[in-house]
Amino acid sequence: MILRRTDGSVILAAYSCIFNCNDALEAEIHALMQGMALAIQHSELPVIVRSDSSEALLALKGDNLSRSTYGHLVAEIQFLMGEREFIPSKIKRDQNRVAD
């Protein structure tokens, strides 16, 4: 996860391990949730959430995963979204790189 200012400079970079993960979608939802929590702690500005996972970004907007095994994660993300303006943004997979 990388938290950047509007000019692109890095505020915070972090990573974490998920020891039990069923699939890539669960990993992406965990990363979104943790990144959003860090953004709330370290910035007062609206947050642009970028991901290459269309399905994970859809979870931010609706309740399509609310009854799935990831429902508790989606509920946590939607709770975090109530505290700040979050703008979901879909990026291409090759743009999802941290080596800038």
Rank of each mutant, 00 (worst) to 15 (best):
V98K: 00
M81N: 05
L32Y: 04
K61N: 10
G82N: 14
E76F: 00
F79R: 11
G8R: 00
A13F: 07
E26M: 15
I40M: 06
S16M: 14
A13E: 11
I11R: 01
R5C: 14
Y15C: 15
E83F: 04
S51H: 08
G35K: 02
V98F: 03
G71S: 07
G8E: 09
G8S: 09
S54N: 09
F19P: 04
S89P: 00
V74T: 09
V74N: 02
L38S: 08
L65N: 03
Q95E: 15
M81E: 10
S16W: 15
Y15N: 13
I2Q: 08
I18W: 06
D63M: 06
D100R: 00
L12R: 09
G62P: 02
F19V: 08
A39Q: 04
S53Y: 09
I29K: 00
M33W: 06
C21T: 14
L12A: 05
R50V: 05
E76D: 15
L57N: 05
R50T: 10
R5G: 10
S54W: 05
S9F: 07
I48E: 12
Q95L: 11
I87Y: 01
A27V: 12
A24P: 02
F19H: 12
R67F: 09
L12G: 01
I48K: 08
E83H: 03
V49F: 02
F86W: 01
C17E: 10
G62N: 09
V47R: 00
D100C: 05
A27L: 14
S16H: 12
G35M: 04
R84I: 05
I40L: 15
L57F: 06
M36A: 05
G62M: 04
V47D: 02
P46V: 08
I77Q: 03
C21H: 06
T6W: 15
Q34G: 07
L3A: 08
S51M: 07
F19L: 11
L12V: 11
E85G: 01
K90Y: 07
G71D: 11
L45S: 10
A56W: 08
L3D: 04
M81T: 05
K61Y: 04
M33E: 15
R84N: 13
G82P: 03
T69V: 08
R93K: 12
L38N: 09
A39R: 01
S9L: 11
A37R: 02
N96F: 10
H42F: 15
N64K: 02
G35T: 07
A31M: 09
A24F: 06
N64D: 09
L73A: 01
P46T: 03
Y70T: 05
S68R: 05
N20W: 12
I77N: 04
H42M: 02
P88G: 05
S54F: 10
L25N: 01
L60T: 11
L12T: 02
I40S: 00
L3I: 12
I11P: 10
I11G: 07
R4E: 14
N22Y: 09
S51A: 11
L80R: 01
L58Q: 10
H42N: 14
S54P: 03
L65E: 06
Q78D: 11
G62I: 03
R5E: 15
V47T: 13
A13V: 12
R67L: 12
I18L: 13
I77D: 09
Q41E: 15
